[in-house]
Design a protein around this nucleic acid. Structure first.
Lengths: 160, 160
DNA sequence: GGTGAAAAGCTTCGTGT
DNA sequence: ACACGAAGCTTTTCACC
C-alpha cells in the first residue's frame, strides 16, 4: 500500500502544495508544467490514494498568547494495555497537547508536546490534570527556549 | 503585540479554518453566522495581524514511504554562540528534520523530530550527517512506536 | 494521459443601511 | 460594522486528440 508510483510531476505537485495550501490550480499547473485539467486530476488522484491528507491553516502561537512550548516525558508505572489506553484517552481530551507519541525507552514512555499561555497555566496543568491521570509515575519537563525549525512539509527526495 | 482583542466570532473563524484550510468563505460565513463580506474581511484582518500564519497541505507519512518518526536528543560539547549557530545552520539543511528546538536541560540540548524511510537511512543519517557536525557530543535516539496525537490546531479556549 | 472550451461556483469589490 | 448585488476569476466537467 505505501508508495504508489509517483513521477516527477507528482512530486513537484506535492512539494508545491505542501508549502502553499492555497495555491490555485492554475498557478500550480503552470509551476509543474501542465495544463490545468490534468493537474487538478492528479491532485484528486493523490487525494483518493490517501497521499494527500488534509488542508489546514496554521496560526501564530505567540500572537494567540501561547508563547510557551513544552516537551514532557511521561512514564507509567505499568505498561498494561488498559493503563496505556486510559492514559491516551485522557491526554487526548486536552487541546493544549499537540503531540503525543509512545516512544522506545526504559519504561512505558510518552513524549508530549504542549503549548501554554504561561507558567502558572502549566503548573496547574501539571498538578491538576497530568498528575491526576491513573498510572502516571514520573514526569520530566523540557522547556523550549527557541524553536529553530518547525516544519510541516515532509521530505520527498527519497522517492524514486 | 500578542493577543489582539478577538471576539467570539473571530475565535469561531480561527477554530474552523484551523481544522479545514479549504473551507469556502461562503460556508465559513454560514458557520460563524455572518454574511460572506464581513467574514472575508475578518479573515484578512487576522492575516494582516499575523494571527493567521499560512495555509498548508498535510501529506500522509506512511503513504509517502516515511513510516519512521524519531526523536533525537542532541547535546553539544560547548554552548558557544558560534557552536550553536553552526549546528542550527547545518541541521536546517536536512528536510528530514521537521522540528528542532533548543530546550532546557543539563547541557546545551536540542530536541529533533525527524522522519525516515527505514532504519538503514537513519543509520546513515546518524553516522554520516548528524555525527559529522562540529561540536556534537552525544546523541540519544527515541523511536516512535505509535503516534497517539499529532495536531496542528492550537487551543483557543484560553482567549478571553 | 494530455488538451481545450463552456458552465457553475466562489471571491471580491462597491454601495447602501 | 454588516448586508446586498455585480464583476472577475477558478474550478469543474465535458468532448476530443
Amino acid at each position: 500500500m505505501p508508495i504508489k508510483k509517483l513521477d516527477r510531476i507528482d512530486r513537484k505537485i506535492l512539494d508545491e502544495i505542501q508549502r502553499d495550501g492555497n495555491i490555485s490550480n492554475l498557478e500550480l499547473a503552470d509551476k509543474v508544467g501542465l495544463s490545468p485539467s490534468p493537474c487538478s486530476r492528479r491532485v484528486r488522484q493523490l487525494e483518493d490514494a490517501g497521499i494527500i491528507d488534509k488542508q489546514v491553516t496554521l496560526l501564530n502561537q505567540s500572537e494567540l498568547g501561547l508563547p510557551l512550548t513544552i516537551f514532557i516525558h511521561v512514564s507509567l508505572e505499568k505498561q498494561l494495555p488498559k493503563t496505556l489506553d486510559n492514559f491516551e484517552r485522557s491526554i487526548s481530551t486536552y487541546n493544549e497537547v499537540l503531540e503525543c507519541s509512545l516512544i522506545t525507552g526504559s519504561d512505558a514512555d510518552y513524549l508530549l508536546k504542549v503549548v501554554m499561555p504561561d507558567m502558572s497555566y502549566y503548573e496547574k496543568f501539571l498538578l491538576k490534570e497530568l498528575n491526576q491521570i491513573e498510572g502516571v509515575s514520573s514526569i520530566r519537563t523540557s522547556f523550549v527556549m527557541r524553536q529553530v525549525l518547525n516544519r510541516t512539509a515532509l521530505p520527498l527526495s527519497h522517492i524514486k
